[in-house]
Nucleic acid binder design. Structure first.
Length: 435
RNA sequence: UCCGCGGUAGCUCAACUGGCAGAGCGGCUGGCUGUUAACCAGUAGGUUGGGGGUUCAAGUCCCUCCCGCGGAGCCA
């Protein structure tokens, strides 16, 4: 009986007899020789089944095994330059778990529709595995980043009674006879816990019922939102910058193999250096009107940027760019007005380069009760529902800021994948909930 | 919701102005002792998304519905 190992550790066992357990990823066969590419979740390894060292039945079995056959393989690990990765296993025994002959995903190209219908199987392919690993790394990097800076993770509710930014974009559910919504942000709750703990963040799924159907949208996506007391607008942006740089650092350091599989040009990620440019909304509008190609109508001051504008702005720099000071009426009620420019708010959107769109949205929060009441009325929001929130301005209001960063958008950029749907195992999209 | 593109073999696609529905991959059979999406030969595989219409004749033209993709608005 030989030691069972995981493929990622294969190099440490060269010269030894070992057992692998996993799936047949691919097979290349000769009459007296089979190259079995076996994967076990930790990696993949070429296993060589040669006629002169195996019984006839085993060779016949190799003939019949199709892709994704589950099996256990024993043999000796050898260094060999001809093998992908430089290591291969000389097979001495194969124990079949399940023979598969008709795995639907083949080695040739497939269309999006087919792959999405087979998402549960598509996840086994190398690019998808790489993306899931990068995702895991980013989640860990974020947790470490906030922990190291004295933040406390406090998760916020998913059922919420009221809408922060208008009800049209929320999924509603029956909360035992009462109407509830699936959360769109944990921001207001973060402000409450920040007043208790100083620096907090939440991380979880968030839901948008918008009928958006683009490469940047999901109906269910994961967002990390942080809130910190005594952070002003500038502190907030510097902190976002630090988070992005740290995330890139972690991924470049720990996901080299994954980025390679994804064909990601890492120079593009390395180019993201501090400081990220800051551009006033007013200047962004001017830039769009002066330089944006193919524009026929004048972009009107006071409008919100659409996807083409965001893409254009993001492409002007090799690093992410902050757009600041949006006109107050285009942004949420809780954002603080800029004392030096009261028509605008102390908010920022961080746009990714290469046209990946908005990664982060953040702002300093309004801390004056009177002003915030005025804004709630201006936005025609139900005052009663926000009484608890107003209490935060009644009992020891302090300056504070925060932001939200979308995990899948960030991953789309880091991995350089064309569509956000690949950055989450089971994407929830417009009219798409299977599997 | 709106705009654009598409739906043909298990998969990816082809079929000029309407005129016998095809290829590659995958499957199966056979060949090959070092393959790298292995290769070579053979073979099976079809209600051309559904319904209706025009025509001697429809994958192709018209109407309609369904589904998918890309995008807009909105947003992370």
């Amino acid at each position: 009986m030989c030691e069972t190992i995981r493929i990622r550790d294969a190099k440490e066992h060269i010269g030894q007899k070992v057992r692998l357990r996993g799936w047949l990823r691919n097979k290349r066969s000769g009459k007296n020789l089979h190259f079995l590419i076996v994967r076990d979740g930790s990696g993949e390894l070429q296993c060589v089944a040669a006629e002169d060292s195996l019984p006839v039945e085993t060779m016949e079995l190799c003939d019949r095994m199709g892709i994704e056959t589950s099996l256990e393989v024993c043999g000796e690990l050898n260094a060999d330059d001809r093998a992908p990765g430089g290591v291969e296993l000389q097979v001495t025994q194969i124990d079949l778990l399940q023979l598969v002959a008709d795995y639907p995903i083949t080695k040739k190209e497939h269309g999006t529709e087919f792959l999405m219908e087979n998402r549960h199987l598509w996840l086994r392919s190398s690019k998808q595995i790489a993306i899931m690993r990068v995702r895991d790394m980013v989640e860990k990097a974020w947790a470490d980043f906030f922990y190291d800076r004295g933040f406390v993770r406090v998760d916020t509710p998913i059922f919420t009674p009221n809408a922060v930014e208008g009800t049209t974009t929320l999924f509603d559910v029956d909360y035992h006879g009462e109407k509830a919504f699936l959360s769109q942000t944990g921001q207001l709750y973060n402000e409450a816990t920040a007043a208790a703990l100083g620096r907090v963040y939440c991380f979880g799924p968030t839901f948008r019922a918008e009928k958006s159907k683009t490469r940047r949208h999901l109906l269910e996506f994961w967002m990390l939102e942080m809130e910190a007391v005594f952070f002003d607008h500038e502190d907030n942006m510097r902190f976002q910058e630090e988070l992005i740089l740290d995330t890139i650092r972690a991924v470049l350091k720990n996901c080299t193999a994954e980025l390679e599989i994804l064909g990601r040009d890492t120079a593009k990620l390395e180019a993201a250096k501090a400081p990220f440019p800051r551009m006033h909304y007013r200047d962004a509008v001017k830039l769009i009107n002066d330089k944006m190609p193919g524009r026929e109508e004048e972009f009107e001051y006071g409008s919100d940027f659409g996807a083409p504008e965001e893409t254009f702005l993001g492409e002007q720099f090799e690093r992410p760019v902050f757009i600041t000071n949006f006109p107050a009426h285009t942004k949420a009620f809780y954002m603080k007005r800029d004392p030096d420019d009261p028509e605008t708010v102390l908010a920022s959107d961080l746009l990714g380069p290469e046209g990946y769109g908005e990664l982060i949205g953040g702002s300093q929060r309004e801390d004056d009760l009177e002003v915030i009441l005025e804004r709630v009325r201006e936005f025609k929001l139900p005052e009663e529902a926000f009484q608890w929130y107003f209490d935060l301005r009644r009992f020891g209001s302090v300056p504070h800021s925060g932001f939200g960063i979308g995990l899948e958008r960030t991953l789309t950029w880091l991995c350089g994948v064309p569509h956000i749907r690949e950055t989450i195992a089971f994407p929830r999209m417009l009219h798409h909930m299977y599997p």
